[in-house]
Computed example of a mutant assay.
Amino acid sequence: MGNLKVRVWDVKHGNAIFVRTPNNKNLVYDLGRGDYSENSEDRSPLETLYDHYKIRDIHYLVITHPHRDHIDDILNLDKFNLVSLHRPVSLDKKAILQGISERDRPKFNKFFELDESFTEDATDSTTISNPDNYGGVKINVFQTEELNDNLNNISIFSVLQYEGLKIIIPGDNEYESLELLMERSDFRDAVKNADILIAPHHGRESAYHTEFLKLVNPRVTIISDGSLCDTSANAKYSSMSRGWRVHQKGQKVKRNLLTTNSDGEIYIDFGRNQEGKYLQIEIK
């Protein structure tokens, strides 16, 4: 078996992550689009997967929650054979569509079309995938339903584990939902001592939870965001991360924090080699 490979796309204030499992299954987390480094709204990760990676099947798609910056690229899904869809349960379609601009309405209509056609794959808070399906990759999934007045707080929260290494993809969960999740022993066990944390809610203060960060204890935190704003908790995430040697312009540089707005796309490769656990992070 090979390694688990992860690409965190540079999609401005949004989220889009591509995962290739050791048995060549294609996992996609969120559908942001754009390119902060090129000041472009048109860059489509899905088009890149289709045209350059020659991918035709998406085996596992997670839309953490239906905010525009997480579904901007959704109309390009028609090019692919979509095997499974995972998204929050208990969505209020009328409330979500209220106030949506005419320009964005086709994207949300597409989301609900998919939501209705994949009824058997709705995610609940007890979902744990069979690792045999994904080359030994174990996927734990959590969601709170109590806070559905704020879509961020019902985001699907995922933990991927492979060969003793761990990456956390929490969507836009904020402090309130993290507080609820931290009450669960299975959640605490799943997130403890991770290697990579994708910061919840783009690294905003509204999602910063000190006890959660202490438990996760990440080597590196990655923030997917556009320009730095007043509510950024970047410095806090950096201080709470252990650091790792990152391949950066031909050199290995110890980094605690990576951000798409300053580092561009981020590539992660992890698994096991002859020397034991293997983790490589690269920015180009």
Rank of each mutant, 00 (worst) to 15 (best):
I156N: 15
I156V: 15
F157C: 10
S158Y: 08
S158H: 04
V159P: 01
L160W: 00
Q161R: 15
Y162T: 09
E163N: 14
G164D: 10
G164L: 04
K166R: 15
K166M: 12
I167C: 11
I167F: 05
I167H: 00
I168N: 00
I169W: 10
I169N: 03
P170M: 15
G171C: 11
G171D: 12
E174Q: 15
Y175N: 09
Y175Q: 10
E176K: 09
E176M: 10
E179G: 05
L180S: 02
L180C: 04
L181R: 07
M182S: 11
R184K: 13
R184E: 07
S185F: 00
D186M: 12
F187S: 11
F187L: 14
R188A: 11
V191A: 01
K192R: 14
K192Y: 09
N193R: 05
I196G: 01
I196A: 00
I198E: 00
A199V: 08
A199E: 05
A199N: 04
A199M: 05
P200L: 15
P200I: 15
P200V: 15
P200H: 15
H201S: 07
R204S: 02
S206H: 11
S206G: 01
S206T: 12
Y208K: 00
H209T: 08
H209M: 03
T210E: 13
T210Q: 10
T210M: 05
T210F: 09
F212L: 12
F212K: 01
K214A: 07
L215S: 06
L215T: 03
N217T: 04
N217I: 02
P218G: 11
P218I: 09
R219T: 12
V220W: 01
T221K: 03
I222N: 05
S224K: 11
S224H: 05
S224N: 02
S224P: 00
D225S: 14
S227G: 13
S227A: 15
L228S: 09
S232L: 00
A233W: 00
A233T: 06
A235P: 01
A235G: 06
A235I: 04
Y237D: 02
M240K: 06
M240A: 04
R242H: 05
W244K: 10
R245K: 13
R245H: 12
H247K: 13
Q248A: 13
G250N: 08
Q251A: 15
Q251T: 07
K254Y: 11
L257P: 05
L258M: 06
T259H: 04
T259N: 03
T260K: 14
T260Y: 09
D263Q: 10
G264E: 03
G271R: 00
G271K: 00
N273T: 07
Q274A: 13
E275G: 12
G276L: 12
Y278M: 08
Y278E: 13
L279W: 02
L279R: 01
L279I: 13
L279C: 05
Q280T: 14
Q280L: 12
